[in-house]
Amino acid sequence: MKLAGRIEIAAPARDVWDLMIDPVSLAACVPGVQHVARVDDRTFKGTISAAVGPMEGQFEFASTIVSSEYPTDLQVETLGTDSVTRSQLQANVQAWLEPLDPGRTALAYRATVNVNGRLAIVGEMILRATAGVMIGELVKCLRARLEAGAGGRPAAADVAAGPPG
């Protein structure tokens, strides 16, 4: 499953980049994420809860920044497992920046999401829409932080939303 998008942000490219390559700020912008923990400079893990009709489950995931070449190549690999079927989800998000003028930057991304195992039976129904909305919300959240002049750093409390998991 492939997803793509582009968003313009009223902030210099460098600020956008600094925010994106910081796992803490990335994690803070993932909607509904819980139990976030920083594993190292490039990796964070967390849990997302989802329900479809009567079925409810948790996704435990770890996201790693696997490459970062300013401003054209940021790649984040995510591996997740769902609590119900123990199916594996793999997501690769590639993002790049186009500096538009000194105070404005376009952030573009492309994502591939694959599911293996039984979850793929319902995967398309849940994942495609959900992944699309989540990535969209994530980049909007990054933009909001930058445009609010948060200096590219979310408050630490935002990240420590749940116990480390």
């Binding site: 509904g32 989802a50 329900a51 479809v52 009709g53 829409a129 989540m134 919300e137």
Partner: peptide, 12 residues
Amino acid sequence: RPSIRVAGIPPL
């Protein structure tokens, strides 16, 4: 189909 619910995003 019934809605998909994920905390932090509107129902789908």
